[in-house]
Computed example of a mutant assay.
Amino acid sequence: MQTVNIHNAKTNLSRLVDRAAKGEPFIIAKAGKPLVKVVPIDQPTTAQMRRVGFMAGQFSVPDDFDRMGDEEIEQLFDMNT
């Protein structure tokens, strides 16, 4: 994400806003310290975005998960003969 200083942002505001509206957010900084983030108005908020791991803690994996179905697989591939 592009960071621009406040003077540069004032000078190029139209161009920067056009880019942000097209999905390229940017950060405005003052003396190198980030102050604000400019994003399109219709960009989903963090709360609206789908979280990865939303089912975390709702189920558990059995200890023998990596060995489940061994017998059936051996029979299918006839591994014991």
Rank of each mutant, 00 (worst) to 15 (best):
A21H: 15
E72W: 07
A9F: 10
S60I: 02
F54A: 07
A9V: 02
P25W: 01
I28V: 13
R19L: 10
Q43R: 14
R19E: 15
Q58H: 15
D78V: 03
A47F: 09
P44W: 00
M79Q: 11
P25M: 05
I27L: 10
D66C: 01
K10Q: 08
V39A: 00
P44D: 04
L35E: 03
A9G: 08
A31E: 15
T3W: 13
Q58P: 00
M79H: 05
E71C: 02
D70R: 04
T81G: 06
G57L: 09
M68H: 14
G57H: 12
E24K: 00
P25Q: 00
E72Q: 12
G69R: 07
G69H: 08
K33C: 08
N80Y: 05
Q2L: 15
E72C: 11
D42E: 07
K22G: 00
F59A: 06
N80R: 06
V61N: 07
M1V: 11
T46C: 07
F54Q: 08
V52T: 11
Q43T: 13
E72S: 10
F77P: 02
R15D: 04
N8D: 13
P34D: 10
N5H: 12
K33N: 10
K10W: 10
G53H: 15
R15P: 01
K10D: 05
A20I: 03
E72I: 03
P40K: 13
G57F: 12
P44Y: 06
A56Q: 14
D42C: 03
R50P: 06
I41K: 09
A31M: 09
R15E: 15
G23R: 12
V17P: 01
A21E: 11
D18P: 01
R15C: 04
K22R: 15
F65I: 08
Q75P: 02
F65P: 03
H7D: 09
D18M: 11
R67T: 12
L13P: 02
F26V: 00
N8I: 15
I28Y: 03
R19D: 12
E74N: 14
R15W: 08
